[in-house]
């Protein structure tokens, strides 16, 4: 029981990070039909920027988070403007190649500046063992889950309540009709990229806080694919639930089975879900009226 609770908790932590990364991925896909293969590098950049601000410059962590998010937003806008906008109307395969190129570029820039060694992250989240329901867990994991949950709720509210969020979903639904009511599609694309970079940066900070900063963080980007395929490529709740399911599965298989099965299991799920439910759990099938 003890072990189960601990595994569940670390699965949730992992899942929350995956959910944040997947959320950004889904957002970009929904708004602009681009599959962003550089999502993992957004995590990486977020983690290193936070490391530089707090670990190297010695800023307070709260300012660090805010500035990191702002930098991520700026990065998203710049990438959309400079790289993605000229590609509008190009075939999907070129878009994929561009984002793959982008991911190599970002990784290279990060390792040029900070090197490839693993560094300890300036732990700003207290990591003390406490007892929850009889199991011993560290508080940093609870914090990570909490932070991720807050952001997920905020984004959900943004999409359901604010008119910018609704406009964003409108663009995802029918670009031309959205244009006809004065919604600026360019602005929405830029917003999608910046929000996506921001959520990924937060995810990156959370991972780095638990695992330390290293180039491995971008490897999480690969696990985003099973998550979004499971949840549905264009579903925001799907990204969250998919992330949590994959996170839990990894923790349980790692804890109970071992043999490195935890790093394979997401892709087993990926293959299975593509065979039985290609739209994913919550993906939109095209609505047909009867």
């Amino acid at each position: 029981m003890d072990q189960f609770l601990q595994l569940t908790l670390s699965g949730l932590t992992n899942g929350a990070v995956l959910a944040l990364a997947a959320l950004g991925f889904v957002l970009i896909y929904k708004a602009s039909d681009v599959l962003n293969f550089a999502q993992g590098e957004f995590l990486l950049v977020g983690a290193y920027v936070m490391f530089a601000l707090v670990g190297e410059l010695g800023w307070h962590w709260s300012i660090g988070i805010v500035v990191t998010v702002l930098i991520a937003v700026a990065l998203g806008v710049v990438l959309e403007r400079a790289v993605l906008r000229p590609m509008i109307g190009e075939p999907i395969i070129s878009l994929i190649m561009v984002t793959i190129g982008l991911s190599s570029l970002l990784r290279a820039i990060v390792s040029t500046i900070w090197g490839t060694d693993e560094r300890a992250f300036p732990s700003f989240i207290p990591s003390e063992p406490i007892k929850v329901l009889g199991a011993t867990v560290t508080t940093d994991k609870l914090w990570a889950i909490g932070i991720a949950a807050v952001f997920l709720v905020v984004f959900n509210l943004f999409f359901r309540r604010s008119s910018e969020g609704i406009a964003m979903r409108a663009v995802a639904d029918d670009q031309q009709a959205a244009l006809s009511m004065g919604i600026s599609v360019k602005k929405i694309f830029a917003m999608a990229w910046s929000i996506s970079a921001a959520t990924a940066a937060i995810g990156g900070i959370i991972v780095a806080n638990i695992l330390g900063v290293s180039g491995n963080i971008s490897g999480l980007g690969l696990q985003v694919f099973p998550v979004v395929i499971l949840g549905g490529l264009d579903s925001i709740p799907g990204a969250v639930i998919g992330g949590i399911i994959i996170g839990l599965l990894q923790a349980y298989t790692g804890g109970y089975v071992g043999f490195g099965l935890n790093s394979i299991i997401p892709f087993v799920v990926l293959v299975l879900i593509l065979m039985v439910k290609p739209y994913g759990l919550f993906g939109q099938e095209i609505i047909e009226r009867v």
């Binding site: 008119s163 609704i166 409108a170 029918d174 009709a177 009511m181 004065g182 609505i287």
Partner: peptide, 23 residues
């Protein structure tokens, strides 16, 4: 009002109206 209605299918009726008032 475009030909063929072009409502935002996955948005609710109310959200469609809010999107209409975007500007």
């Amino acid at each position: 009002v475009m030909e063929g209605r072009r409502v935002f299918e996955h948005l609710t009726v109310e959200e469609n109206l809010i999107a209409g008032g975007y500007t």
